[in-house]
Design a protein around this nucleic acid. Sequence first.
RNA 1: GCGGAUAUGGCGGAAUUGGCAGACGCGUUAGAUUCAGGUUCUAAUGGUCGCAAGGCUGUGCAGGUUCAAGUCCUGUUAUCCGCACCA
Length: 802
Amino acid sequence: MKYEKYDFAQVEKKWQDIWDAKNVFAATNDYTKPKYYALVEFPYPSGQGLHVGHPRSYTALDIVARKRRLEGYNVLYPMGWDAFGLPTENFAIKNHIHPEIVTRQNVAHFKSQLKSLGLSFDWNREINTTDFNYYKWTQWIFLQLFKKGLAYKKEMSVNWCTSCKCVLANEEVVGGVCERCGSEVVHKVKSQWMLKITAYAQRLIDDLDLVDYIDRVKVSQINWIGRSTGAEVEFGTTTGDALTVYTTRPDTLFGATYMVLSPEHPYIEQWADRLSNMEEIRAYQAEAARKSDFERTELVKDKSGVELKGVKGINPVNGKEIPIYISDYVLMTYGTGAIMAVPAHDTRDWDFAKKFGLPIIEVVKGGDVEKEAFTDCETGTMVNSGMLDGLSVEEAKEKIKTWLEENGKGQSKVNFKLRDWVFSRQRYWGEPIPMVFCEKCGWVPLPESELPLRLPEVKSYEPTDSGESPLAHMDEWVNTTCPHCGGPARRETDTMPQWAGSSWYFMRYCDPTNSEALASKEALDYWLPVDWYNGGMEHTTLHLLYSRFWHKFLYDIGVVSTPEPYAKRTSHGMILGENGEKMSKSRGNVVNPDEIVREYGADTMRLYEMFIGDFEKAAPWNSSSIKGCKRFLDRVWALQNVLEGGKAYRPSLESSMHKTIKKVTEDIEQLKFNTAIAAMMALLNEIEAAGSVNEAEYRTLLILLNPFAPHVTEEIWEAQSFGGMINQQKWVSFDPAKCVDAEAEIVVQVNGKIKCRLSLPVDCPKEDAIARAKEAAAQALEGKTVVKEICVPGKLVNFVVK
RNA sequence: GCGGAUAUGGCGGAAUUGGCAGACGCGUUAGAUUCAGGUUCUAAUGGUCGCAAGGCUGUGCAGGUUCAAGUCCUGUUAUCCGCACCA
């Protein structure tokens, strides 16, 4: 027994060094070759180092990338660092180290961890969002957005994390608390840079048709953008002012029995001297403003509000005067900040009407509006609605819209839940926003020639209680001259959010050192779109949406030539702790990838993470199961002991070889890595049962396994002098005709119950199969009458008897 | 409340168009190797009745369609994830 075990630590290091030295995974700039761009989300280099979750995604696309190289593509599989952000900054504050140094250390650690896994990244194209040669172009994109009117500064109520002392985008507030630290989020009025993502809302929905994303990603993006169709309706008021509301149910206009304004609605101040209960109203406004998002959502069930006494609304369809309330269940940020309330057909209005004793008028027949709101749009018929009586809801909607338009009282309207993107952060460790404020000229963009605007050295990175960025104290940096008039001016001191750098990083990989442009047009045209992008579901409505928006904008201004950045998007499930819970330090169930690599080797680690279960689903780690993967690789290694010559598969194994190639080839494309590995294990079992392996069989097995376990396959390939490096061979092909066996096992059933099995040639005619089956099941058929004979060729014969 | 998903042995999970449920792996049991532990090898392994041959039963639950259902239809329960007063 010559080959029993191998020293994986030594073998893996050896091959990693050789790949590095020979630069074998570098993408070439030969734009005539067919290309393949595989992308995984670049990590945030945190102090904790790599998590076992990272390699799940990275190994999966590494397998795809390695397979594509064997298939002859020019493959780009790059890696970089999304390194701006709060954890690094907080660590820097605590330990009085510059965030740049922290970042450098963390990157070095991450990089060595990734290298130890044998991932075939093209390290020549490594990027880092905190490198000023990189963020120069992040700033450049911001300037283009500003020039097109898509970046604007606005005084507004924003989400404010009380612990990070920083504003948050809507997407970063989860369940009323800060996505990152879990602290309370309150509202604060601040002047903020905003990006007009809402201008792209419709296209962000429509163009999902152009791409191959897994369904749940499309569905959540569509829900998040939240398109709704309805109408704006102009109500009159006893003050003479018109009060416009948005509704998706204009058909129920006759059922409007009151109106509700958001507590922040500007009419309230405008009407102040007419309102007899202004004190009560002010108290309610103050209370609503004080509530955090969390409290507001907690109190969803219990409606509150105050009537505006002294003013009435006037329903345009029937001239009826109805009361107006304010309530925090109406949001200033959606629609017009005012609604018509139809308690009979809206649950929220119903709750409110019941609490305040307001009338409920049924206008769609079909439910019992005294018991609950009847909200069904499919079945009801219009009643109590004048000209709409007798129509279906759909017909009524159309008719009333036409009436509103003809009478100048409203029109159809589409609304989106999506809000503009709050783009300022009051922190140090981010890209400076390249804008200057001049008393005379207002906000002036920095000339492109002055980019990058580098982060200055500061004494303290501490966020301030005043809500200003730490940069605000750097007078010599802040005070500058106006690029427009030359007069004294001040720089913007807020920085960009963490999502800025990651919104376009996949473009930079195409041409990472370009100093003239974010990347050359040729490089972008060749490499984009990304062919396959894998990443976490948690980024669906953050990074993924933001980067689609930026890409579309860059498409509009001619920087890129494809409307969508990613042709295909898939998502991996989480790796949970052994107890089935999410891995976390506090739960004490964290698995350290370094230890796994040390104990079992990178090949085993990779194989196990791919074998652990359905790639798209969460799977608990299991420290015994990993042994199975180690055993498998050891047995593949040990085949060297029973290796024989032979240029063709032996007949007994031929169909198994072809079937396995087919299975592995197809499964990789469908993210079914677990069954691809199972198929290779089954093939190995069969080869072992045969007592030996021949060269043709071994070569095929090694090539199939190479993308999964690149080191050991490379080592065997070399040890057996199979010629060159395995990563430079050709992917193996199969013959569909040879994937079928000559004989198939047929199941013989009587009344659907299996009685026996028999082996028949696959091309055995039906009649013969039935005859043979009848013989075989003679005992079970004795004394019975066969009513029906069913034969599925190659599968079964079933006799229905009485 | 709305949206999305999931439910199969002791565990992770397999099962083209409805056609042998439990592939592959872990674990377990027995045996071999070993001073021993580990490793490796052989065999068994859904439950249940039976000495056995063999039978019965079995994919969250209740119905239904079918020669045949994990898969299709109707209803229902549980769990997970996302969103949440969006008019």
